[in-house]
Design a protein around this nucleic acid. Structure first.
Lengths: 340, 340
DNA sequence: GACCGGTATGGTTGCGCAATCATCTTGTCA
DNA sequence: TGACAAGATGATTGCGCAACCATACCGGTC
């Protein structure tokens, strides 16, 4: 009677009865066809199709204490950076048997820790986390959870388990060096959000300026507010009010850079003649802005793909894998920093 | 011996033993605390904390044939429109017991149908799908799956179950009307992707032009390629080569509009003096572009929130709900269509 | 011809929880 | 005071699958 209340879907047992084998043989045929002889396999496949059987992943997870879920934590859903990472992740699982579970932790290590606990209670096959700045408790969970953990976005020498990304510090240094090489000397910085990766880029910039004796705290205009195009304009106005002598701004990302560019267009500041502008990420619009924006191309999509590749390799133990992967970055010099 | 092989986590039974009650009481205390007396509840809560118990969602799902999963299908991960929808969805489940499962169906009804089958085999609590243009088979599955189904992004009179969105056709009409009211007469259209919603916007535009006797097929420049800022420039160049007499372009979205604006800046076409530009969605940058972009503000975030609200209301059967929700849109007139 | 090892298949059990029904307690009212 | 309702708690069972161990069968070896 209980069975009648549920909308009874076909189960392994139904397939087995139809094919004239035991349920466990059907289970094997599905999980690892090589374990079953060819003719049984054919009969089982036919039976599955005939009654339109689909396995119940919950029952499977319960019986085997294993899932096919990759748990992913990212700090933002709207930052295009993570949209690209997610696309890489989803593309990479496309032809595998794995599933992705995304959580938005809103740039909060505390929320991240909470989410991690929730995820681990579901016994995911692997965990993908953003950055290397987890809370102490989260780090301990990551170390002891007994599953692959991939930290993405940053290159690090000491991943908890595995890591794939690039050096934000070196990227900050490189683009600052590019500005210096292009002849700019009083280089401001427009910062937003100030997450750990932004801070490392800022640090890279400041270290280079320091080395050249061009450092000055008043060149930094930054806020905790989320970055946006509109914010880029506000920050530039504030910086130029305080330091009208700057000849270039390095922006924490392309959104802010675009906002700065619009602000210059609006207030008649020639770019790059009067002010050079450089961004970060090489978003779609950077190449076609007027003038086109110098920026740093970052391997966001590839980070997502590789992270999943590393996770699956670790789960299945098939191939030897690098535990640390630095995918690098590329300075893309365009019109906005081209001194005549 | 089997138990030793698994990393044995505490279960309901452990909590029950510690608290001196039966497992089912613990289960009740967790699912609906009102069913359990106050002192037992306190003892159970203490025991849970003491041994750090977390429920096993797979076991729960198996036993109850129910999950707390909201299955969501969206056509793109990188289109900012859906980033906002996702943010609304994730925000709405934040304080609930529900979980979100996202799938990227890449604007493909066939992939959408395949994904729907996969999702339904997991018995989600509800299903959220984008648009109203599912395959016939998918539509049948949606009708017969026995769970709430919410179609998002479009207002429709005949949802399979429930729908929340706005009328793309009316939005296309309204913004075209705005261009006419602003004095533009030879209005081109730049289209990309050409998904069903884009097509309805185009239709809205063309119908208005038709009514005014201003319609002409050669005013439409469209491609199946995914939209981007760069594409906006290309499309505008092509359109102006063919129809140098146009005095405004309506763009399928703000990315394309921004690309068109950059193209104008680059080629010295005055906006709005020589060419008016209007976009769609009111993205972050539209308000601060130079000139600022006229566009249509769409309730993307709110669609996500409401969809989840409708889903939960339907699952729990608590409140009376509208099965159709039209959240409307708003024409945002800015400099790019301001005729002097 | 007895024995061995490997392969293919099946039987039994339990994963952790919730549905169902049964039982117990308490309070209320005629 | 007894009957009964309503609420609180417990015992039993099974969800669908995979782990584990058992068994049947094969061909080859000495």
């Amino acid at each position: 009677m209980r069975k009648l209340k549920r909308d009874r879907r076909p189960t392994l047992k139904d397939v087995a009865a139809l094919a004239g084998v035991s349920p466990i043989t059907v289970s094997r045929a599905l999980r690892d066809p090589r374990m079953v002889s060819e003719d049984l396999r054919a009969r089982i496949t036919a039976s599955i199709r005939q009654i339109d059987y689909t396995p119940d992943p919950n029952a499977s997870a319960l019986a085997s204490a294993r899932t096919n879920v990759l748990a992913v934590m990212i700090p933002s859903l709207t930052n295009i950076v993570f949209s690209d990472v997610m696309r890489g992740i989803y593309d990479a699982v496309e032809d595998s048997s794995y599933q992705v579970q995304i959580a938005n932790v809103r740039y909060s290590p505390v929320a991240e820790e909470r989410t991690l606990r929730m995820f681990l209670s579901q016994r995911p096959a692997a965990v993908i986390m953003t950055g290397v700045d987890q809370t102490k408790a989260a780090r301990e969970l990551m170390e002891r959870c007994g599953r692959p953990v991939i930290q993405i976005m940053e290159a690090t020498d000491a991943p908890v388990d595995m890591a794939v990304g690039f050096s934000h510090y070196e990227a900050g240094r490189a683009v600052t060096r590019h500005l210096l090489d292009s002849g700019f000397r009083r280089i401001g910085f427009l910062g937003a959000r100030l997450d750990p990766r932004s801070l490392r880029r800022i640090k890279g910039c400041q270290d280079v300026l320091q080395e050249e004796g061009l450092s000055d705290p008043s060149l930094l205009e930054a806020t905790q507010a989320p970055s946006s195009v509109a914010l880029g304009g506000h920050l530039l106005r504030r910086l130029m009010a305080r330091r009208p002598d700057i000849d270039a701004v390095l922006c924490v990302n392309d959104d802010v850079a675009l906002g700065a560019l619009f602000e210059c267009q609006r207030s008649g500041v020639a770019v790059p003649g009067r002010l050079g502008i450089a961004g970060f990420n090489d978003l779609d619009g950077a190449a076609v802005a007027c003038p086109s924006l110098t920026t740093v191309r970052t391997p966001r999509y590839e980070i997502g793909r590789r992270a999943v590749g590393m996770a699956i390799a670790a789960i299945e133990g098939t191939s030897i894998i690098d535990r640390r992967l630095d995918l690098g970055f590329e300075i893309v010099a365009r019109e906005s920093t081209r001194r005549l």
